[in-house]
Amino acid sequence: MSYRYITLDFDNHVATLKLNRPEVHNAFDDIMIGELLDAFQQIERHPACRVVVLASNGRNFSAGADLNWMRSMAEKNYAENIADAKQLAQLMERLDKLTKPTIALVQGAAFGGAVGLAACCDIVLAEERTSFCLSEVKIGLIPAVISPYVMRAMGTRQARRYMLSAERFGADAALTMGLVHEVVDNLDQAAADVVELLLGNSPAAVTAAKQLIADLDQQPIDATSQRLTVERIAEIRVSAEGQEGLSAFLEKRSANWKKDSQ
């Protein structure tokens, strides 16, 4: 499928997905959301893909929702707005639940829904001068669909401030809150370093670890969680990659997935 507002490339086990509307600061509308949904589906199905990089072309990561699109939705009825919001919710869920590790590279400005995209990724790298803003209340709206992911990433206490004030905050503040993992000078080099780390790990184990995190998040530490963790480690130990990883470690050699990524 050819895309109008995004690009998708696969190379050496890495899928690079870029927002590609720099003339409007990569603002997204229903067309871009549909394209992103299709791209995530392709990524999930790609047999060789092991890492996903989410980035954008131009000065800014994304200005959030396209204002012309928002204006058109304001003219539609409640049922039509429900359908539209469901598509954005599906986008956030699909990104959040991708079985492959995701890295967001954020530069310039990340406003509104763009903060949600970052919050749904496993690892977020940002340039020092990046600014974030949950700006919805300034125009009479709320960051509703992205709120579960943003609150999980930056914490409820911080979300209460920034979702209500709609003030900008920088990369260092985002780092302190946990929305960003690392503030870097060179996004491409930092991304390459993280990709190398991820490709050095067992693909099956990385996928299993992602699922484990999702299943345990916000759950009490009790007999149920204990049983789940016991079962998961037993499953991975007897799996093909679990056996290969342990053998490679004991034999002081590279595991076969490392050879595949070279």
Rank of each mutant, 00 (worst) to 15 (best):
V195P: 14
E167T: 14
P143T: 02
F249C: 08
T229I: 15
R157W: 07
L187T: 02
L91S: 03
E75H: 10
I146A: 15
V124N: 01
G170F: 06
Y78L: 14
N81I: 01
F111D: 11
E251V: 04
D96R: 05
A171S: 15
S147H: 01
V124H: 00
D11I: 01
K258G: 04
C49L: 00
Q211L: 13
V206I: 05
S225W: 09
A223M: 12
S147C: 03
E182P: 01
H13D: 00
I6V: 12
K138H: 14
F249G: 03
D66S: 10
L179C: 00
N81T: 01
A208K: 09
N12V: 05
K138I: 08
A173L: 08
N201D: 15
E35Y: 06
A126W: 01
E182T: 04
F28S: 06
L117G: 01
L228S: 10
Y3H: 01
D260E: 14
R160K: 11
M1V: 10
I233T: 12
L8D: 04
R21S: 07
I123L: 01
L216C: 14
V24I: 14
L95G: 10
T229G: 06
E196N: 15
H46C: 00
G155C: 09
R94A: 06
R59T: 03
L17Q: 04
D222E: 15
A192L: 04
T224H: 15
A118V: 00
Y78N: 12
L91H: 06
R157Y: 09
L36Y: 00
I233C: 07
A204M: 06
A104I: 03
A27P: 14
E182D: 06
A192Q: 12
R157N: 11
K258W: 06
D185A: 13
V238S: 13
M154E: 11
L246Y: 08
M163A: 12
L67Y: 11
K76S: 11
E23Y: 11
A89E: 07
K86G: 13
A27K: 05
A144E: 11
I236H: 13
R4G: 10
A209S: 05
T99R: 09
H46M: 07
A110I: 07
S147M: 04
Q219H: 09
G64I: 01
A205L: 13
R157P: 04
V14P: 13
G200I: 07
L67M: 11
G112Y: 00
A39F: 09
Q41I: 12
A74N: 15
F132T: 02
V150W: 02
A248V: 03
S247R: 12
P101S: 10
A204H: 13
F169I: 05
N20P: 07
C121W: 00
S72F: 04
R4F: 04
E127P: 00
S62F: 04
G242V: 10
H25D: 11
A104T: 03
A153D: 02
K252A: 09
P203M: 02
D29H: 00
R21N: 07
E244I: 06
N20H: 15
E231W: 14
E182F: 02
I31L: 04
Q90K: 15
R71W: 10
A248K: 07
M163C: 14
A110T: 03
A15Q: 05
E75M: 11
V180K: 00
L17E: 03
S56P: 06
L246V: 09
Q189M: 04
E136Q: 13
L198G: 11
R129P: 09
D96H: 05
Q262F: 12
I233Y: 09
